[in-house]
Amino acid sequence: MSLEMDAANSGSSIFNNNNNNSDDNLKCGKLKGVNSTKQSKKSDGKQDSSEKYQEKIATIRSMFAKEYESHPELYDECDHRKVMEKDFWVSRFMADPSESVEDSYEKLRSTMEWRRSFGVNSFDPFTIPKEIYQIAALIPYEKDRQGRPTLYIRGKIHRKIEQLEDKIKHYLVNVIEQLDSAKESRESWIIILDASDANFFNTDLDMIMFLFGTLRNRYPRGVATALLYGLPWLLGAFANMVISFLPSDSVAKIKFGGKKELNELIDESNLPDWLGGTCTVNYRRVPKGAISCYEMAEKEFNMTKADVDKLIKPFIQYLKPELCVEVDP
Rank of each mutant, 00 (worst) to 15 (best):
W189P: 07
F256H: 08
D194E: 08
K259W: 00
W233N: 05
W189T: 06
G277E: 10
Y283S: 09
N270D: 00
M209L: 15
N217D: 11
V281T: 14
R284C: 05
Y283Q: 07
N263L: 15
P232I: 13
E264P: 00
W189F: 15
L246G: 05
S181Q: 15
N270K: 13
K259I: 05
L246Y: 03
R221L: 12
V251M: 00
G289I: 08
R284M: 07
D197E: 15
I208H: 11
G230K: 15
T203K: 06
P232Q: 09
N202Y: 06
V242H: 07
P232Y: 06
C279D: 15
V281R: 08
L234T: 12
Y294R: 10
W274R: 07
E261C: 11
D249M: 03
F256Y: 13
W189S: 08
F212Y: 14
A290R: 04
F238K: 03
A290G: 03
M209P: 00
L228Y: 02
C293P: 00
R285Y: 03
T214K: 05
K255G: 01
P247F: 09
N270V: 01
F238I: 13
R216W: 01
A237E: 08
S188H: 12
D249H: 14
L193T: 02
V223K: 05
L275A: 12
S188E: 10
A198L: 07
I191S: 08
G236Q: 13
P220I: 01
S244H: 09
D204M: 06
P272C: 10
L193E: 10
N217P: 00
T280L: 13
L228E: 00
E261G: 10
L231A: 11
I243D: 01
D194N: 10
A226Y: 02
A252C: 01
D273F: 03
K183Q: 13
Y219V: 02
K253T: 07
A252M: 04
N217F: 01
Y283T: 11
G276S: 09
M241N: 12
G276W: 14
N199D: 15
P287W: 05
D197H: 12
P247G: 05
R285N: 11
D197V: 14
L275F: 07
P232M: 04
S292W: 10
N217K: 12
I243Q: 01
W189K: 07
G257P: 00
S185Q: 13
M241K: 14
